[in-house]
Nucleic acid binder design. Structure first.
Lengths: 189, 189
DNA sequence: CTTTTCTTTTGACGAACGTCACAAAATCAT
DNA sequence: ATGATTTTGTGACGTTCGTCAAAAGAAAAG
């Protein structure tokens, strides 16, 4: 079961049959229709999520009540909603399906129990976090190092799936600009 | 020895005398004069750093050759230069002292050996990474959710030490704007 | 197929930004 | 102390941005 998750684990740190069997037993599944929420602002996040299929976005509302998108997830991504889960605090962010999606999730309490059982999970958890931290660092460099137009061109070059599959109104705030400005940047090619 | 590091550890995860003694044995120290580099772009980062005293900045050059500052570190901060260390790839970033600084560093190979010895270090490492990831997530939200002026006001309110102790020319790129624009925002109060 | 709803584009306008050049102020080194 | 260097502020200018309002286009619902 869950071959794509197993494959994703294996790429990070080869998982033994035994460890995988134990891990499989804590996996739960959730199906989301387009526009369904996986997590809402204010809720406490109690699980680690792995996107099995579909597309999910992270967004929050700024002081003006405008939606700010800070992440888009595709197949085989781990969702980076660490703050709420780690600190047991209400999430500032929403996780919402952009397309019908299937999410695997691993309950935090069960995961903690696994951490005690075998070193392996602890190590895997650390390595996944390393990857997530790197992604976040790259995103903030991306936002500070480039102008709006350069950011769009960068995405066009390096993450075309965002432009093809994410509504432009969502993508705009991810690029740090308004909907209309993104439209005009696209026009200027 | 190293009371502030021990205290910082304890706040994250209570460290036993035994674990601390083992850990102490791998600690090394580096003193930096103002403008000295702890790490240069292109070098491979081989240690985790903890800033014992002083101020350090992270910056890199964008395509126009302009310096982009993406982090400032103060006393008792862990430095977030994860990508190069984790992936053994040349660093894209520079770590440079803004003031005379003392850095504790923990060699990656020695740290890995500790990870094998006791679960504790593995867990501590994971928890530190969780904190670093949260910081990075907040920074990117900060950049996308607020206008340049709002970003300055936010820093003024929440991180006044940046405005007091970081040269404005460095702070500007951290806020995602030009030196001159920051100067004008300050003028408009 | 048609209507409704949602998304993207366009126009107009004022504000803010980046850039270049230079001036003023502060800091450093001798 | 004083001259050199670095940092910060200002002026001018063209460009791009955000906003509001409305139109055009695409997608969803009946």
């Amino acid at each position: 079961m869950y071959p794509s998750l197993k494959h994703t684990f294996d790429k990070i740190l080869k998982i033994s049959d035994e460890d995988w069997q134990t891990f499989e037993s804590i996996i739960e599944t959730k199906n989301l229709k387009k526009k369904d929420y996986l997590l809402r602002q204010g809720q406490i996040c109690r699980a680690v999520y792995f996107l099995s299929s579909g597309i999910i976005r992270t967004f929050h509302l700024n002081d003006d009540g405008k939606e700010i998108n800070t992440a888009f997830y595709f197949q085989n991504d781990f969702l980076r909603e660490i703050e709420s889960m780690t600190n047991h605090t209400p999430s500032k962010k929403n996780l919402q399906a952009i397309e019908d999606s299937t999410v695997l999730f691993f309950d935090k309490a069960k995961l903690t129990a696994l951490y005690e059982k075998s070193d392996f999970y602890q190590k895997l958890g650390r390595m996944i976090l390393e990857k997530l931290t790197i992604i976040e660092q790259r995103y903030s460099s991306f936002l500070t190092a480039y102008s709006p137009k350069e950011r769009y061109l960068y995405i066009l070059e390096n993450r075309p799936e965002l432009i093809e599959q994410i509504p432009l109104q969502y993508l705009a705030s991810y690029l740090g600009i308004s909907r209309e400005s993104l439209s005009r940047i696209r026009k200027r090619i």
